[in-house]
Design a protein around this nucleic acid. Structure first.
Lengths: 140, 140
DNA sequence: ATTACTGCAAATACTTTGCAATTGT
DNA sequence: ACAATTGCAAAGTATTTGCAGTAAT
């Protein structure tokens, strides 16, 4: 029994090949960010007829038990395996999303007293370092 | 020339009755949160045939010039007049959104160095105080 | 054996777009 | 007069749902 299947089992979810594939793909790329379509494209490689609704079903199940984190950006869901509280930076120039760590002191302070917080989504938008350098170079 | 129309003018936007109505409605309720549908329902009171696409056009124009803030939650846009950096708390029990202030020290620390940040969206989900009290009372 | 999950198709929900008519500057 | 905005209809995109068949426990 692998690490991933154990996680599924411990979460009370059944171990299906499709779920394993999603877990494997999402956990595979460290700090990766995936849309339902990304995952769909990947799974179609080995299972060409898998419908995208199954991807949605799986990602919802996995995020409900906390095995992955879901957030929405530009009108679509994005899934990631990094379930630690962190910020996601979306670059409006290259459309890439990158993780930004936040200190535990800040994490603490973000949670309001007397509120039961089950989910934190911190999304920054702007221009990433790489694109910013490019743009400055292009102006010169 | 009212305060609101001056804001529009200064932003380079034309002053139309529809925009004024949206501004008035959104700024009217302090710390209010509105979906396109909310605004649509409100404007229909005085202009019954106004299409919802106009609401979307207006909210986009206003948020582009920074006269209101837009974020997405549960697959839909939410608009608010509070353009200060703050957190929005979504209660999964009563579906209400409330503002949560964050200190300027935290604001500072949220912005990564070397990144050009144009937008910050901090959304917390959980159970608000009011609902939490109700639930505890119901259990007793 | 039972319950949960997948696959498929269709529906839903929200937002955007194109364009002609109108309005603000 | 000119450019921007509204109103309308239609399209587009992302996600959800119902249900029959299948697979996991």
């Amino acid at each position: 029994m692998t690490d991933l299947s154990e996680k599924l089992k411990n979460s009370g979810l059944k171990i299906t090949p499709q779920r394993m594939e999603v877990m494997r793909y999402i956990s595979g790329t460290l700090n990766g960010h995936f849309t339902a379509e990304d995952i769909h494209e990947e799974l179609k490689k080995t299972e060409p007829t898998i419908p995208i609704s199954t991807i949605y079903n799986i990602t919802r199940a996995l995020s409900e038990v906390g095995l992955l984190k879901a957030f929405e950006i530009n009108g679509r869901m994005v899934f990631e395996s990094n379930i630690e509280t962190h910020a996601n930076f979306y670059c409006t120039s290259c459309n890439e999303i990158s993780d930004i760590a936040i200190s535990s002191a800040i994490k603490e302070s973000l949670i309001p007293h007397n509120f039961v917080v089950t989910d934190i989504s911190l999304i920054l938008k702007g221009v990433c370092n790489k694109c910013n350098v490019k743009e400055i170079a292009a102006e010169a």
